[in-house]
Amino acid sequence: MSGICDGRVVIVTGGGRGLGRAHALALAAEGARVVVNDLGVGPDGLPGEPPGPGGHARQVVDEIRAAGGEALAHGGDVAAPEGARSLIAAAVDGFGRLDALVNNAGFLRDRMLVNLDEEDWDAVVRVHLKGHFLPLKHAAAYWRGEAKAGRETAARVVGTTSGAGLLGSVGQGGYSAAKAGIVALTLVAAAELGRYGVQVNAVAPAARTRMTERAFPEAMAAPGAPGAFDAMSPSNVSPLVVWLCSGPPSAGVTGRVFEAEAGRITVMEGWRRGPTADRAARWTPAEAGEAARGLLAGAEPPLPVYGSGPPRPVHRKG
């Protein structure tokens, strides 16, 4: 296998199913040697789903090898210090290096805020946000060591955020907060790690997976006609992820957040300063309120939170 990731070593967390599996297969098809991480839990993060711990990762590894690629399986918990450390070690020990990290692992425990248990909040924030931080921390330490040893690095990190993290989503308070945190972590990591040759970006995907098929059953339905374009296939997101993991082709792209859905890619422009009022002195509360009202009148209205308005269209122009 050869392609834009030829010879590069890439880790994919949550790589046993859904988006992670699609990313792992697409990376291997472009020549990457892939470490497939998957804990093997259910869509709510609870154990007991066959074929057991690490089994889905091994199945993806078998697929890659059957197609002529190289891959290793890792069944550790990336939101635990030892699991994250051993993941990076698996790549370096198994393939001699690490070039890219795709943080994708996650699960859902959706509840309205008044019904959301602290345990469920902690579990969701842990897997998404801490599950991004710890592998990133250990990978960054490896790349810093490489840079200090004088070895040139063209490392890449791709985080997985969500439209829920960018806009919010009714019934997904913990998930939305964690995914928003991933965006902030991406920006900080891009600023801090650039000196070591590391580029850090994030992708907000929309695709049919175990996590979305219950939330958006109609939009996520597969096409009925044979050969029809499956707009919500996870494979539609993977080409952008593969490109972001490449070396020279993606050089200079860092600190960015993309939406990827069907055949559409969008660069998110994030928080930018809009209308401003400055009186160069302290406002009274009444004056501050009057100024805020005036500024809001001239500002762009926010996009609606997922689940708070009409159904979100699957395709949009632009």
Rank of each mutant, 00 (worst) to 15 (best):
2 S>L: 08
4 I>A: 04
4 I>C: 08
4 I>K: 09
15 G>Y: 05
17 R>L: 14
18 G>E: 06
20 G>V: 05
20 G>M: 06
21 R>N: 03
23 H>G: 07
28 A>F: 02
32 A>Q: 03
34 V>C: 04
35 V>F: 00
40 G>P: 02
40 G>E: 02
41 V>H: 01
44 D>S: 12
52 G>E: 05
53 P>H: 00
55 G>M: 00
61 V>Q: 02
61 V>I: 04
67 A>E: 03
69 G>F: 00
71 A>Y: 05
72 L>C: 01
73 A>E: 07
74 H>G: 11
74 H>A: 04
76 G>W: 08
77 D>M: 00
79 A>L: 05
80 A>K: 07
81 P>L: 03
82 E>L: 05
83 G>W: 05
84 A>H: 07
84 A>T: 12
89 A>G: 14
92 V>F: 04
94 G>H: 03
96 G>M: 10
97 R>G: 11
97 R>Q: 14
103 N>Q: 00
106 G>H: 03
109 R>T: 02
110 D>N: 09
112 M>I: 13
112 M>D: 09
113 L>N: 12
118 E>S: 13
119 E>G: 11
119 E>R: 12
122 D>Q: 05
123 A>T: 11
125 V>W: 09
127 V>Y: 08
128 H>C: 06
128 H>V: 13
130 K>N: 15
138 H>A: 12
146 E>D: 07
147 A>S: 15
149 A>E: 11
153 T>D: 10
154 A>V: 15
155 A>W: 10
156 R>C: 14
158 V>P: 10
168 G>N: 09
170 V>D: 11
171 G>P: 09
173 G>M: 13
175 Y>V: 06
180 A>R: 06
181 G>M: 01
184 A>F: 04
186 T>N: 07
187 L>K: 14
188 V>R: 09
188 V>D: 08
189 A>P: 13
190 A>G: 05
192 E>G: 01
193 L>F: 04
193 L>M: 00
194 G>T: 06
195 R>Y: 00
195 R>K: 12
202 A>T: 08
205 P>T: 01
207 A>Q: 03
207 A>H: 00
208 R>H: 06
209 T>E: 00
212 T>G: 11
212 T>I: 06
222 A>Y: 02
223 P>G: 04
223 P>A: 01
224 G>W: 10
225 A>C: 03
226 P>D: 11
226 P>H: 10
228 A>K: 06
229 F>L: 14
233 S>A: 14
233 S>E: 10
235 S>T: 15
236 N>K: 09
239 P>K: 09
241 V>G: 02
243 W>K: 08
245 C>S: 11
247 G>I: 08
248 P>L: 03
249 P>T: 08
251 A>I: 12
254 T>W: 04
256 R>Y: 01
257 V>A: 05
258 F>V: 06
259 E>Y: 13
260 A>V: 15
260 A>E: 06
261 E>K: 12
264 R>D: 02
264 R>C: 07
275 P>K: 00
277 A>V: 14
278 D>V: 05
278 D>S: 06
279 R>C: 04
280 A>P: 03
280 A>Q: 15
281 A>Q: 10
281 A>W: 02
287 E>D: 12
289 G>Q: 11
291 A>M: 07
292 A>K: 01
296 L>T: 05
296 L>D: 04
297 A>I: 03
300 E>T: 15
300 E>N: 14
302 P>S: 14
302 P>F: 13
302 P>M: 13
306 Y>L: 15
310 P>T: 07
312 R>E: 15
314 V>D: 14
